[in-house]
Amino acid sequence: MASDYVKPRVPTVDKIAADERAAKFKQRSIKTTAKAAGLHLIISMIDLTTLEGSDTPGKVRMLCRKARRPMPDGDCPTVGAVCVYPPMVPVAVEELEGTDINIASVATYFPSGQASLDERVEEVRRTVELGADEIDMVINRGAFLAGEYGRVHDEIAATKKACGDAHLKVILETGELQTYDNVRLASQIAIDAGGDFIKTSTGKVSPKATLPVTLVMLETIRDHFLKTGKMVGMKPAGGISDAKLALRYLAMVKETLGDAWLSPDWFRFGASSLLNDVLMQLEKQRTGRYHSDRYLSIS
């Protein structure tokens, strides 16, 4: 079936200069009150994730309980969502009942997406039925790299339709797209097709999320918003394991998209070990000292 979708015109991206701009966010010095507020914001933006072949209901339960109460006591928000494989969604639903924490699930034959469109869409439908609030899909990178942009677009649109009320996050798998020009184009296609969020990576392919790739995606979101008034969310995923790096991402959001996006409604971190590092930093803020990681619960 031939697609009616016309390849969008997107600005070119100069890699050296984009890397340089992204590196400037590393120079931002985020201390004292800004650090404390930023750390709280980061926790509320985390999609606490387990996506392993070895996941069991027990593991997912452990993760959900950590999501509800990241720290034994003290002033600490809950995370934005828990992110699991489709078969684990019912476990998460049970564990997170009565909380504001969303359940995200990776449908569409994550991480490769190598299945027919019918199979992928069907998986999305089933996963939403199981109770997922958010679907993290992967785009068809093969089709993208083969230049079948219309197909990539239409498949995302079909997935979006299958989501119903659930939010759709579109994973570009930027590590496979490789060039920033590709990232910019794929971001625009995902947005045009109705993605609520665009997301860098599955976490299974390296390089995972990087500052410059996220910057290119944020700039696409910004330009689309200014043109159409439609806000799209952003989720870097994979490789963001320490609080310091997460704060740099926040600075980048602040200076690229402004205040409106500094919210879990519009920005998420796909991460697992990030939460404990943020908690450790919060304790450091509170007590002035770093404690051992044996005081932090695992998830």
């Binding site: 010095s29 985020i30 800004a34 008034g229 602040k254 402004g258 205040d259 409106a260």
Partner: peptide, 20 residues
Amino acid sequence: SSKSVRDLLFGDLWEYATAP
């Protein structure tokens, strides 16, 4: 007015503290 709604707000929701 629709244009001003569409503009980005670089405000003080999360401000950098002084870092002397």
